[in-house]
Design a protein around this nucleic acid. Structure first.
Length: 178
DNA sequence: GCCAACGTTGGC
DNA sequence: GCCAACGTTGGC
């Protein structure tokens, strides 16, 4: 049993999309990085993954998904109409893999990257490192449980609890670079 | 919109 | 096989 973190841009595919998908299951297609692909191939049925929204406001861990089918060829690689098309891939030489994942739970509140960074037990996580770009990374059992526990804890009363539709918040101008 | 970090590409 | 140029990612 292994734990993972899978990253997606919610404008492309969000955990809400997964909740609405048939059988709340989807193909995790489009991974086009060898290291991430190799992690996909190491996934076993029953493995659990933190579902993370990148390029979101805020970037956050938003739920948990479960691997329900192990790696098999990703056909979008030889679909010329797909944005994931790779001219070097073919049914005979798939190159890229995907897994199927099923929704386990949507967190009661998103755990933002800022909050994750504030948890000492999560300090070693790949996703929190500057310049981390891998869309699939392993996490330890402790990291997984720590994030899940935060996510399942009801939002505390007060302004810190973001409403589900607070996406319209815009960035403040003039932020200084670190 | 900016730009650091990183992977990939291609000339040599 | 090196490495500069280039493209992409993703937090800010």
């Amino acid at each position: 049993m292994q734990y993972w973190l899978i990253k997606t841009e919610p404008t492309s595919f969000s955990i809400q999309d997964l909740a609405k998908a048939p059988k709340q299951t989807t193909f995790w297609e489009g991974v086009r990085n060898y290291q991430a692909r190799n992690f996909l191939r190491a996934m076993k049925v029953g493995d659990l993954a933190i579902f993370y929204h990148s390029n979101a406001e805020p970037p956050a861990a938003v739920g948990v998904a479960k691997v329900v089918r192990e790696a098999y060829p990703d056909p979008t690689a030889w679909d010329k109409k797909s944005k994931y098309f790779d001219a070097n891939a073919s049914p005979d030489n798939p190159i890229w893999s995907m897994v199927d994942v099923h929704l386990v739970e949507i967190f009661k509140r998103p755990i933002s990257i800022d909050e994750l960074r504030g948890v000492p037990a999560l300090a070693g996580m790949e996703i929190l490192k500057r310049g981390s770009r891998l869309s699939v990374t392993p996490v330890t059992a402790t990291e997984f449980r720590t994030i899940e526990k935060l996510g399942l804890r009801a939002a505390s009363a007060g302004p810190a609890a973001p409403a589900a539709d607070s996406q319209a918040r815009h960035r403040s101008p003039g932020r200084s670079r670190r």
